[in-house]
Amino acid sequence: MTLPERGLWSRALMAADEEAVIVLAERLSLQHDARPAGQPRAGLALLRLRESVALDTFYLGEIPVATARVALRAPDGLYVDGGAVLMDDSTELAAAIAVLDGVLAHDLAGANEVADLVRKGQKTIDREGRIRNAMLSRTRVDFALMGEAGDDTHS
């Protein structure tokens, strides 16, 4: 399974086992001398939506958001950044995912383990996608005129 693009890593890691994410992030934090680049924050974001009849925008409501940014020491001694923004209210999880994001984005030691976790999470998301697709395909309406062949007879 190929690694999804960076824009999908956070969501994939949220779908992975949370304890595995935290444990791996703790280990890689020590290994790469992770330090926060700013305080992790949790709060709310307004969800701005474009409605489809006049193409106007409005706020549908609010969503929880947690965000974190970390600096990690690369082998050359320079620091590189990792970050995460999640629809969640756990700064601990955001900080952990920021570490994993930085390790994977800069191919630091442990990147393979992070990639495995991303793939596991993505697998869960893909399975959810298959379930949703089945919800659609199994309930697709087969219209036909009265008396014509093709009336809905299957179960």
Binding site: R6, G7, L8, I63, D81, G83, V85, M87, D88, G102
Partner: peptide, 17 residues
């Protein structure tokens, strides 16, 4: 739901509603 990545500023998927 997409929000800008704190480092790159690129839109990333933060969840769904």
């Amino acid at each position: 739901i997409t929000l800008p990545h704190p480092v790159t500023g690129e839109p990333i998927e933060a969840g769904e509603v």
